[in-house]
Nucleic acid binder design. Structure first.
Lengths: 337, 337
DNA sequence: TTGTAAGCGTTATCAG
DNA sequence: CTGATAACGCTTACAA
């Protein structure tokens, strides 16, 4: 077990090697403009020779800056990582942060550990925090905003007075686009399988559906509710069918539920999209593999993550930045509508 | 924008408040046994009163320990987070680490940033590293093992001489279990859709299939290869069917490919599982929602992540620990076989 | 059992 | 433009 970790060279050693003061080395390392070109050369050579790399802890201590930002994951851990939404957002964050010299500290927030997390965040261990609260819209970390730069992913469920920074995807517009598409293709009896109404995405997607229908002067079709799982989608579809109202299209608030609705439709003898067109939401990775492939609303999740990171860094570094950013989704046409 | 970050209380302040020396406070904070009970009480009260929380950087500097471990993600970032394998493993890691006072530093490793990553890891910024290399078996970070405690997720493609620590799921046994199940149910013409043969999982799953068939004295059925995507699964299934050999079961090296094989089978008029039974691998989250639900091999991914973390912490703290851990999968019976 | 004081590796202030 | 020299907040021998 080669645990031969040779002690890292210090700035002191570099200074000695180069025959200059520590201050100068520090300046070179940090790219200060006020250093003689010759000096820089010399010092740089020593740095390379010794393979010097600055000690992060020491630097943090001196600068009173950690150069690291927390990624807090508040939802029940079990679901979070399996959730493609979360996965994509994190990806965007990580990608955006990679070239900067901020480090991403993943902290998973279980109910029981809340105080510990709070202390960690407030204890000066990070320069800022990113909190991703997809479904819940739960901004229980809102108070933190006063103590620490914080950017939320997903809009708050309630519009609070204090100004939180957040970036979100535009669920309302996404839904509108989807339903409009259905209408444009001649569908007139558009039902919907909605998500939970205590989560912003569930709420907004239903609202979008209702809006467009109203604007088109169409009767709103029947509504059934699910909880974003495939099973609930199947149940909802069954409810819709049993309702007896005519249906030639259904806007499903997420792909998972659409996945569940598929076999129910098939068993009922309704062909997709001939008899009933279906449009999903999220562009989940399996949606191209369903039969028929699912037409769905794609959200710029990766970009959303990147934007979150960007905003936070701005905040940390005292640059002006937008308080709310809402990103548009796009419809990806496949075979189901 | 309330950036009123009040300066955190220092150990010094606590000491003053409590009327003791900094050393004593430090001892209390770190739970040293050599402190008078009374003292502990007093100090603790001050700590609470001031809401003191130790500064991580200062502590690291003094202790020469960062208390943080790196999670390096070497694969092309784009896929990694969408990959349920990775997601589950990370979940396990995060969960295991949460109650400890190690912090998880996610570092996403793009080709271009390799040197930066190396410097980061070797620059004393972390106490150890976890590298997850699912498919590839690529242990290009192997060299690191000599400089820093490292634990790999997924076995190396080639058995190297230096002793790397790794934990893996047992793909071979998983495959064996699946195929044995098929045989036990009376199937005698068992084909397989294998994964890429330059990845350990692809390799081992195919080997397991071949082994069991041989041991049962059965002729090996036809083999077709895919790349773990649904499309490739569809293509492979087509190849299998066109081959003309009798097939009453197919062991598919992962669920995605099984997903792709489904419609091909259906179009060919073969009922699942009546005409041909299919067993997948991975227990992907959609596998319960397919029609029929997919019987598949579940791997203890979360546990695997947890184990990785456990091993690494042992390594870091100088405790003895196993070099290789291989975890068993289990068959989850659903409707497809 | 508690206190003193010397670091830990950088940065930053101030002279020179 | 460069060099001393204090911090930065905590740990840890070593004393008392």
């Amino acid at each position: 077990m080669g645990m031969t970790r040779s002690k890292a060279p210090t700035l002191e050693m570099v200074a000695h090697h180069a025959g200059v003061s520590r201050a100068t080395v520090s300046r070179v390392v940090n790219g200060a403009a006020t250093v003689d070109k010759q000096m820089v050369e010399v010092v740089q050579r020593s740095i390379d020779a010794l393979n010097y790399v600055p000690n992060r802890a020491a630097r943090s201590l001196a600068r009173r800056r950690t150069q690291s930002i927390a990624l807090v994951v508040p939802e029940s851990a079990a679901k979070v990582f399996a959730d493609p939404f979360f996965a994509s957002v994190v990806q965007g964050i990580a990608l955006e942060l990679a070239p900067t010299d901020y480090t991403l500290n993943m902290i998973i927030e279980s109910e029981a550990q809340a105080p510990k997390t709070r202390r960690y965040l407030l204890g000066g261990n990070v320069d800022g925090a990113l909190v991703v609260s997809h479904h819940t819209g739960d901004h229980s970390w809102a108070e933190l905003s006063d103590m620490l730069p914080v950017v939320f992913g997903g809009r708050p469920l309630v519009r609070s007075d204090s100004e939180h920074h957040f970036v979100d995807v535009d669920n309302l517009r996404g839904a509108r686009i989807a339903v409009q598409y259905l209408i444009d293709r001649g569908r007139t009896h558009v039902a919907t399988i909605a998500g939970p109404q205590d989560m912003p995405p569930g709420l907004d997607r239903l609202t979008g559906w209702a809006q467009v229908l109203a604007e088109a002067g169409l009767q709103p079709g029947p509504v059934a509710y699910g909880d974003f799982t495939a099973d609930s989608g199947a149940a909802a579809m069954r409810t819709l069918l049993e309702g007896g109202e005519p249906i030639d299209a259904v806007f499903v608030a997420n792909d998972q539920m659409a996945l569940g609705a598929y076999p129910v439709l098939r068993e009922a003898g309704r062909r997709i999209p001939d008899d009933v067109a279906v449009v999903g939401f999220d562009d989940s990775y399996f949606s191209a593999s369903t039969d028929p492939p699912l037409t769905t609303v794609h959200q710029p999740l990766v970009e959303m993550g990147a934007e979150m990171a960007r905003v936070l860094v701005n905040l940390i570094e005292g640059r002006p930045t937008e308080t709310a950013t809402v990103m548009d989704g796009t419809l990806v046409e496949r075979g189901s509508a």
